[in-house]
């Protein structure tokens, strides 16, 4: 920023558009609010007053059209897998998926005898962050969310990728 330095008042920040976009996106990823099993209780606890997800800019949306992040909180049955896929496809780009808990990650306790359970939600939708735990505590989920925010921040949506 050599040329532009000290040319403006103190309350003006100069940055590349890419960086500003990344910052704006990463600090307001609204998540799609739906729970599939007991992990949903922990997700609700994270959103409630004690852990308060809104302080990191996250807010539940009830429609996939308005959401940026899908938190797959709980056991994905094969019946639900089709719906999860459909909901993911309904979300607008850029979109991210967090697999919360061992059920969503690998089938969890149902990995062997659960004939009706999808063995990992990554078989259906691409996953950005896996949060381990059964169920993960709100602290763990929040760490996962912060990791996701870091990833979003490093994205450069306007920069052309080298072929």
């Amino acid at each position: 920023m050599g040329l532009l330095e000290n040319k403006f008042q103190d309350n003006v920040v100069v940055a590349s558009l890419d960086k500003i976009l990344g910052w704006a996106r990463s600090t307001s990823p609204w998540y799609f609010q739906f729970g599939l099993a007991c992990c949903a209780i922990e997700m609700m606890a994270s959103a409630a007053s004690r852990h308060d997800l809104e302080r990191i800019g996250m807010m539940p949306r009830s429609s996939p059209r308005q959401a940026d992040v899908m938190i797959v909180a709980g056991t994905v049955t094969l019946k639900m897998a089709l719906r999860v896929k459909k909901l993911y496809e309904q979300m607008a780009d850029p979109k991210y998926v967090i697999s919360m808990g061992s059920c969503a990650t690998s089938g969890g306790p149902y990995w062997q005898h659960g004939y009706h359970v999808l063995k990992g939600v990554d078989l259906v939708v691409p996953v950005d962050v896996y949060v381990p735990g059964c169920p993960p505590r709100p602290e763990a989920l929040i760490e996962g969310l912060l990791k996701l925010q870091e990833t979003i921040q490093t994205e450069r949506p306007l920069t052309r990728k080298l072929a």
């Binding site: 094969l78 897998a81 990995w111 062997q112 063995k119 078989l123 259906v124």
Partner: peptide
């Protein structure tokens, strides 16, 4: 398989 989703046998 279920609707194209492979169900791994364990």
């Amino acid at each position: 398989s279920f609707h194209g989703i492979v169900v791994p046998k364990i």
